[in-house]
C-alpha cells in the first residue's frame, strides 16, 4: 500500500463528490439577468447585447431568441441543439442562433462564456432574460419558451 497514493485518493474522492454536487445544482440552470438590455433612458445596449447583435442576433424579429454557444468536443451541445430545433418547429415565435464558440473567441470573452453549451435568452425588446451553462433543464427551457412565445393549448 502506497501512502502518497492513499492520500491522493482520499483527496480525489471528496473533490469528485463536490464537483458532482455543484454540477447537479448549477449545470444548465437558468440564471436570470435582472432585466439588462437597452438602457431605458439612453437607449444604449448593454455590453452583452452589443456582443450578441455583433454575431447577427436580431431579438426584435422574434418573441424569444435563444443564442447557443457550442464547441466541437461537446456532446451535450448537440443534444441541446436538437432540442431547440425541435422546439422551434412547434413555436414560430422562437428564434434560434447557433454560434461556434471557437471561431468567435472575442465574443466568448466579452460574454464570459466558460462552458459549452452556454445559452442566452433575449426577449423581443432586446432584454437579456437570462443565461444558462451546460445542457439546459428541459422543464425550465420549455417553461421559458411557453412564457414568451405565447403558446396556446
Amino acid at each position: 500500500m502506497d501512502s502518497t497514493g492513499l492520500l491522493v485518493l482520499l483527496v480525489a474522492l471528496p473533490v469528485t463528490a463536490a464537483v458532482a454536487w455543484w454540477l447537479r445544482v448549477r449545470s444548465g440552470a437558468l440564471r436570470p439577468a435582472g432585466g439588462e438590455g437597452r438602457d431605458a433612458v439612453t437607449g444604449t445596449p448593454a455590453e452583452e447585447l452589443v456582443a450578441l447583435t455583433g454575431l447577427g442576433v436580431r431579438p426584435e424579429e422574434a418573441d424569444l431568441t435563444v443564442v447557443q454557444f457550442s464547441t466541437a468536443f461537446c456532446a451535450p451541445c448537440r443534444a441541446t441543439r436538437a432540442r431547440l430545433q425541435q422546439l422551434q418547429r412547434a413555436r414560430p415565435g422562437l428564434a434560434y442562433v447557433h454560434v461556434d464558440a471557437e471561431s468567435h473567441l472575442d465574443e466568448v470573452r466579452a460574454l464570459d462564456v466558460r462552458r459549452t453549451p452556454t445559452l442566452f435568452y433575449l426577449d423581443r425588446a432586446g432584454r437579456l432574460l437570462g443565461r444558462s451553462s451546460g445542457a439546459p433543464r428541459p422543464e425550465e427551457l420549455t417553461a421559458l419558451v411557453e412564457a414568451h412565445t405565447g403558446v396556446r393549448e
Binding site: T71, F73, C74, A75, A101, E102, L105, V108, R109, V113, R114, R115, T116
Partner: peptide, 9 residues
C-alpha cells in the same frame, strides 16, 4: 471537453 474552450480562451 470543458477544458478545451477554457484553454482556447
Amino acid at each position: 471537453c470543458e477544458l478545451h474552450l477554457l484553454l482556447r480562451r
